[in-house]
Simulated assay, not measured.
Amino acid sequence: MIGDVKKTFRDPASPPPAALAIKVRTLAPSMSRSVGQVAQALVGDPAGCAGLTVTTLARLVGTSEATVVRTARILGYSGYRELRVALAGLAAYQESGRAPAVTSDIAVDDPIADVVAKLARDEQQTLAETAACMDIRQLGRAVAAASSARRVDVYGIGASCLVGQDLAQKLLRIGLIAHAHTDPHLAVTNAVQLRQGDVAIAITDSGSTEDVIEPLRTAFERGATTIAITGNPVGPVARYADHVLTTTTTRESELRPAAMSSRTGQLLVIDCLFVGIAQRTYKRAAPALAASYEALAHRHAPNPRQPPRD
């Protein structure tokens, strides 16, 4: 049966099979009990579930067919048929003998060489998982909206604020009007000025940061196109987002707080967003970027009155 499922057409916009387990882990905290039971059954035995009808799977888990279909859609698939294709792909991926990703806690007495190795492994895992979960269709729509925007406002608090500032300065250098707001009061007062044709971007790993949600909601109500970059795509922030870009994180530990891991995934998403915008606006972006390089070049040139440093 699995072989037959593999031959079924899969919508290229659906998450790749390897992303299924990652999606379940990411969304598990926000799932209802019944949906969570279905999701855990799927990743617990992808090969077995791929061969089951929706009726049989619902009976096995002790829930309704509607809940199974709803679980498929929450995980990013158009329906149960697409989900079965992903299950078969996940089973084949697991059977290929690839080693599972490893996340290692950093101990207080770890040698610095081990710290480097563990952090590098965790960051690589976060990047790979975020890329696997990336909704390319949503990303494309976000790129299109920002490329033609009159103005781009970015909202973030704490570590997400730093990511927002990075995106804003990149956009400024290719000629877009972009602002990263760090004060939640100013963020709201600026959001009031947005309108159709503008873009507002909220960055929040939890998806429930009120200081980020409030200006996004205001921008949404004013008719601006809204984008959420979040680790919780079904959280409160998604209610006011036209486009949701999901990030993932590795496991939090005492010496590796969640903000460190979430930042890695967020930076990948904003880099993808920026490069996509630069591609679409290349004719005006290239001269703007060249001009910014020229304007700053003298600040990086050696001072002729001082000997160069070794």
Rank of each mutant, 00 (worst) to 15 (best):
Y155Q: 12
P257V: 14
V234P: 11
G197S: 01
R195N: 11
R217H: 08
D45L: 08
V234L: 06
L20Y: 11
E214Q: 14
G79W: 13
V68G: 02
A99P: 00
G207K: 04
D205Q: 15
V244G: 00
A295N: 08
G51C: 04
A144Y: 06
E214C: 08
A238Y: 01
A288D: 07
D271M: 07
E254Q: 06
R73T: 15
S262V: 09
I106T: 13
D4I: 00
D114T: 02
G223S: 03
C161R: 05
T26C: 10
G79D: 15
L296W: 14
H179W: 13
M31R: 02
I174S: 00
R217Q: 14
R73L: 10
P46Y: 01
A39K: 00
L42Y: 03
I106N: 05
D45C: 10
A168L: 03
I213W: 00
L245T: 11
I174L: 06
M1G: 09
L273A: 09
S261F: 04
H243T: 02
G3H: 03
G223H: 10
G89V: 02
L267E: 00
Q94D: 09
G76H: 03
D166W: 12
D166C: 06
S261A: 13
D122E: 04
A258K: 02
Q165V: 03
A117M: 01
A21E: 04
T8C: 06
T55V: 15
E214P: 06
F220Y: 14
D45E: 14
D205T: 10
D153Y: 15
G97N: 02
